[in-house]
């Protein structure tokens, strides 16, 4: 499901115009991004937990050229699904 389908689906079940839904979605995501970039974590009850984690700098070696490169530290977003969702997904049939 892509963004468009998600908005259409939300608009249908909430009985709101698509424009409004897409606006709400954008604001939600912007608010989440803001919190995450401030170092806070966002917990969505029953869904999962978004967190910004710092990855330390590391040395990487290109296996072909053997060039050693220092990868700088970075901040990444990780998502941990809630136990509820995790179990639901676990029991779902195999995709593909």
């Amino acid at each position: 499901m892509n963004n468009k389908e998600l908005i259409a689906e939300l608009a249908r079940s909430l009985e709101l115009p698509k424009e409004k839904v897409s606006g709400l979605l954008e604001i939600t995501i912007a608010a989440m991004a803001e919190e995450l970039s401030n170092g806070n974590s966002v917990n969505m009850q029953g869904f999962g937990f978004f967190e910004a984690r710092r990855k330390e700098e590391r040395l990487s070696v290109n296996p072909r050229t053997k060039v050693r490169t220092l990868i700088p530290p970075k901040q990444v977003v990780v998502f941990k699904p809630s136990n509820l969702l995790k179990d639901k997904v676990k029991e779902s049939p195999r995709h593909e």
Partner: peptide, 18 residues
């Protein structure tokens, strides 16, 4: 989202140690 969250480190670049 990745860029927004990584902004404090965005100026850093991989350095070729060799």
């Amino acid at each position: 989202l990745r860029d927004i969250v990584n902004r404090p480190y965005a100026h850093l670049e991989a350095v070729d140690i060799e």
